[in-house]
Each structure stands twice: as structure tokens, then as C-alpha cells.
């Protein structure tokens, strides 16, 4: 199977305090990796390093075979088009309607598309997340779950190869969390994407992940399939599954 993302010996520190130390990771096509960990262990920093929202200090991040840390802005934009990123709160632009939010995402990358095509794309994306009705609403009028779904729709509009989910179920009720987890699976099935899912929601990880990694103090503490880790004797690991 083709390797989509490969991370080798990644290092990152803020103000001389290390956040990530010697991170290694390999994501294959069609595979989902869930990263579990407490707050402040550097999970978000890791995903941000992948799209270079945070500049890593050392190591290598290969996305589709290209080294993200050492490329110019144009190449980076090409890579970013292929890597979708779903932010914690959805990160919808407050001053734009849902439609404008989705259009904004493609206006830069697919300027050659005409208006009807653009509309079709937007509507198709919204239909994928089941929120076509909300097309003319402002983000302020939407609930947290809707925002996340529209955030996902905005990510999907570029048909990415990889999607990075930053805590997709945090702050949602269990039912909505389940819906989001199902949506992640549906998207993977439909577009054959690979994902890295950062979460501390065990249910979500169980539903979506082929592989689970547990992060502690900027390092992967344990890794394996969900059931493997479930049966682990380690107290730290057990704490997540109890």
C-alpha cells in the first residue's frame, strides 16, 4: 500500500521547551490513525507541522513524497490543496455565509471553474454532510455540530487525499459525536481518503481508527490497533480505556 504521510524524527520546541521529540509516523492510503492524548501533549502541534502551520525545528515530514518542511510557498500551496484540515471549532469565517465559506476555499485553487460548476461543487459538498438547507446561513446561527460538519464540507470541496481531524467530536453531545464519527467513515469510503484523527474520545477512535497511537509528553507512548491497546497491561494506557 502506498504511503501518504511519513514523519521521521520530528522535533519542535516553543521557547526552549520541547513539545515534540522524535516523532515517527507512517500513514498508508485508505488508513485512519487516531492519536489519543491529554491536552497539551502536542497533538495539535503535530498536525499543524504536517501542513506547516507550525514550522518544525528538525526532522522530516513527507506528504505524498514531498518534504513539507523544506519547500517554497507555491509547492506548499499545492500540498495544502491535497491535505484537508478540519479545525476544532470548524473555523468557519464569521463574516461570510456558509456558501461563501465554501466558495472561499476553492476560489484560489480553482479559479478557472465557472459559476454553475462552482455552485454544483458547493451544493454537492454540503449534501455530503447533510446540511444543504444551511447554505445561506451565517456561522453564528449554527450549532457546534453543524459548524463542524460544514467545516468538513469545506474541507471536502477540494477532494483531498488526506484529512487531518483536530478533535472532531470535542464539545459535542454523544449522539452528535456518533454522527460525526460515522461521517468520517463515510467520507473515507466515498473518497478513499486517509486520515489522522486527533481525539480523546475513545468511542470515536474505536469507530474510525485502523491504528491508535497514544501520545504523552511529546512522544508516542504506545501504539497498535484499538483492540491491542484495549488489552494492554500498562496503567497509563488502561486509563484511556476505562
Amino acid at each position: 500500500m502506498e504511503t501518504v504521510i511519513e514523519i521521521k524524527h520530528l522535533e519542535k520546541a516553543f521557547n526552549d521547551i520541547p513539545v515534540l521529540t522524535d516523532i515517527n509516523l507512517e500513514l498508508k492510503r485508505g488508513e485512519n490513525i487516531a492519536i489519543l492524548g491529554k491536552s497539551g501533549t502536542g497533538k495539535s502541534v503535530l498536525t499543524k507541522c504536517i501542513v506547516r502551520l507550525v514550522q518544525a525545528d528538525d526532522g522530516e515530514v513527507l506528504v505524498l513524497g514531498n518534504d513539507v518542511l523544506r519547500m517554497d510557498d507555491e509547492q506548499l500551496n499545492e500540498i495544502r490543496k491535497k491535505v484537508g484540515y478540519l479545525f476544532q471549532g470548524g473555523a468557519l469565517y464569521d463574516s461570510m455565509t456558509v456558501r461563501e465559506n465554501l466558495e472561499f476555499q476553492i476560489r484560489r485553487t480553482q479559479l478557472e471553474k465557472n459559476k454553475t460548476e462552482l455552485r454544483q461543487l458547493v451544493e454537492e459538498s454540503l449534501e455530503n454532510v447533510g446540511l444543504l438547507d444551511a447554505i445561506n446561513k451565517m456561522p453564528g446561527e449554527l450549532s457546534g455540530g453543524m459548524k463542524k460538519r460544514i467545516g468538513l464540507a469545506r474541507t471536502l470541496i477540494l477532494k483531498p487525499k488526506v484529512i487531518l481531524y483536530d478533535e472532531p467530536t470535542t464539545g459535542l453531545d454523544p449522539v452528535t459525536s456518533g454522527e460525526i464519527s460515522e461521517l468520517i467513515l463515510a467520507v473515507q469510503e466515498k473518497y478513499n481518503t486517509s486520515s489522522i484523527i486527533i481525539t480523546h474520545d475513545i468511542k470515536c477512535a474505536k469507530m474510525t481508527a485502523n491504528q491508535v497511537k497514544i501520545m504523552k509528553d511529546g512522544k508516542f507512548y504506545a501504539e497498535g490497533t484499538f483492540s491491542e491497546l484495549c488489552e494492554s497491561d500498562d496503567q497509563e494506557v488502561k486509563a484511556y480505556f476505562s
Partner: peptide, 17 residues
């Protein structure tokens, strides 16, 4: 500040704008 906190600026950055 709000855009920064809610990661809208990051989202924009990732989208290539």
C-alpha cells in the same frame, strides 16, 4: 483576535489564501 483564536486564520492559511 477572534479569528486567530477560532483558528480561522489557520484555516485560511491552509486553504491557500
Amino acid at each position: 483576535g477572534a479569528m486567530k483564536v477560532t483558528e480561522q486564520l489557520d484555516a485560511m492559511e491552509v486553504s491557500g489564501a
